[in-house]
């Protein structure tokens, strides 16, 4: 191989750089599922827990287009047999009224930084 003395150190540096997240976190605490504080007065959400856990971000994304652009105001929940305003602050945060103990705990643990609250006002 030509220039092996340059290529091999280069490859090593590249490999170290690409695996940075793994060795940087060596010895860090293992992931623990965050404790969420659920609303006490309400038994269930407008969709199943599994669905909300996996899809709440997509649901909010759809809601904002439906509400702002498509002219829909409410969401009919088959589970609750009731309609709710399609609104982060009026519906979601009505029950989950403590952002720190609900939204933030999970988002912080998974290093997600949603920008809802740069505009929407937390209760």
């Amino acid at each position: 191989m030509y220039d092996a003395n340059k290529i091999i150190p280069g490859l090593i540096i590249f490999a170290l750089f690409m695996t940075f997240p793994f060795w940087y976190n060596l010895g860090a605490d293992a992931y623990t599922t965050p404790e969420l504080e659920l609303p006490e007065d309400y038994e269930r959400c407008i969709e199943s827990t599994e669905f909300m856990r996996a899809e709440h971000m997509n649901m909010l994304d759809e809601w904002r287009d439906l509400y702002v652009r498509e002219g829909y105001q409410e969401y009919w929940s088959e589970l609750k047999q009731e309609s709710y305003p399609m609104s982060l602050t009026k519906t979601c945060m009505y029950c989950h009224s403590d952002k720190e103990k609900f939204c933030d705990r999970c988002h912080n643990a998974t290093a997600v930084d949603p920008y809802c609250w740069t505009c929407h006002i937390e209760p």
Binding site: M59, E62, L66, Y72, W76, E78
Partner: peptide, 16 residues
């Protein structure tokens, strides 16, 4: 076309 993640469920958007 909307709400692909909710397809199948009867939950969905309504007009007030």
């Amino acid at each position: 076309s909307i709400c692909p993640s909710l397809a199948g469920a009867r939950s969905g958007p309504r007009q007030s």
